[in-house]
Every structure is written in structure tokens, then in C-alpha cells.
Design a protein around this nucleic acid. Sequence first.
DNA 1: CCATGTCAAGGTCAC
DNA 2: GTGACCTTGACATGG
Length: 297
Amino acid sequence: MKIGYPCINTSIGCTSNRTFRLKSYSEEKLRYKIRMNLKCLEETLIYNQQHNLLFFRMGSGIIPFASHPICKVDWADEFQKELESIGNFTKKYKFRISMHPDQFVVINSPDKSVVERSIAELEYHSKLMDTMKLDSTCKIQIHVGGKYGDIYSAMDRFMDRYSGLDEKIKKRLAIENDDRLFSLRDCLHISKRVKIPVIFDTLHHECNNNNEPIGKAMESAFKTWKRKDGIPMIDYSSQKKGARKGSHTESIDTKHFRDFLEKSRGLDFDLMLEIKDKEKSALKARKIMGSERSARV
DNA sequence: CCATGTCAAGGTCAC
DNA sequence: GTGACCTTGACATGG
């Protein structure tokens, strides 16, 4: 099992998500930001390797405006050397890498132009990972999308659109149960028909479920992962106290986490901690797991 | 230099 | 039908 956190390291003083305003777009600026982002991505991965955090979600902003029509820079070609070198680093130390495009990627939208932009964004994500020469165990996770008043036709539309995608994208895509619209059961229904792996999100499942106990829920999600997809991925978080339902906690809730470990005993997966203080909680989690393991021996 | 309003993109829900 | 909210940091402007 590998442990990780998403996108940003809060200790090393750089971010690989630097961007700028569309209004001030220039190719020089774009190249500069990409260079800075890649440099920081590398630093972040070095930190992670040294701290044994070998699961990492790359931010979507590494190449700003990559899927926007304004961008004419052939970034994959210009930065091929750097991207491949970072990819090699992740392979040398056996990292697991993922990405998670944000809310604007909605492939089941009834609006054609939304779908086109979503696909362009997915093309960017898969091209980035392809240029880094990452294999198909490195996933791009998305939500099913909107419901538009009829969840069944919304799911059908997802399956249609997914089936029509380029294999380069399809081989990396995974869907995640969300906290309001598409539950684990809905994701499994889709997965059964179009063979897409399901990433189980613990907090979303707490918010939106059909009374499946978490252990059973995890097992059923894991069955959707084939050999080429690698070990199943999990998004773990817990509810922020006193905040809106679904809000991620600031820092790991150790009692909740130990309980989760207990319920997932015997299962193998890579664990993404979606917690606000990022690597700090990931390190705590790693420590807890270490002590649990020695306690069991 | 610092504070504050703003940023490519969608969708849902309350009113 | 409209506006707040999700979520989020960092950009960029204006004082």
C-alpha cells in the first residue's frame, strides 16, 4: 500500500500549480510558468520519495491553459525532456501517480460545447501522462457529472460518451462516487456496463450511500480494477466538524482513521488522503499505519 | 507593500 | 429565473 496527498506540498515553499490570468497571456509567460511548475513538481516528488509518500496526485494546473484555444505552444514537445525525466524518477522509486481534473469536466452534459471542452481537458491530462511515459495504472479520476433531473438518462449519456472516447483517455479514466448525485451503487452500475474502474471515496460514501457498510463497499469497488489498472485507489477523508456536510477536515482525525484501517483490514489499495494540511496528515497516517502493523506482529 | 477583488471552464439548490 | 455556493490558491490591481 502506498500513501499520498493531492497536488500541493505545504512545507517546501513552492507550488506546481502556478498560473496567470488569461488577460495577461503570452507564450513567454506560459513557458516560464511551466518551467517553474515542473521544477516544483520535481522537488515535491523528491520530498515525497524521502518521506516514503509514494502515491501522488499531480495538479491540473501544471500546464496552464493547456486545453484552451489560446494555447498554441507545443508544450509536450518543448518540455519533453523534463517531463520524461520526472516520469523516470517516479518509475525509479515506484511511485503511483494520479490526476483529478476539476468540476468543469462533465462528459455527460447535454451541452455539446461543454462536452467538447471536457474532452479537450481530458486529452491534455492524458497527453501529460503519456509524455511522462506513465503506464495505465496511473489514473485520471472524474465524477460522473450532472444529473439534469433524470439520473438514468444522465448515466446512459455518460456511458455513451465514455465509450466513444479515444483509447488513450479511456485506459486512464476512473470514476469516483460523489457526495450528492452519483453514489457508489450508481458508479458500479456504470462500471459493470462499460468496464471503468471505480475509485472509492470514503467521505463521499458517508454522505451519499445505499446503506452498504464501508468494508463491503470497498470490496465491491475493488472488483472493478483489472490487472492493467493496478492496485485499487481510495480517496480517504473525514468530515470537518461543524462544517457543511462533505467538507474535508483540516487535519487527520486519528480515531476515524484507525477505524477505517480496521474496517479495511486485509484489503490492498493505494491511499490518497484528501486532507487540507496535505503532507502533514499523510505523514501522520503513515506513522499510525506503521504502529498498527507492528502491533499486529 | 499589503489588502482585496478576481480568476477559462459547470452544476445544484434555495429562494 | 437569479444568485449563492462548492473550493482554492494565487494572481493582479489599486490604495
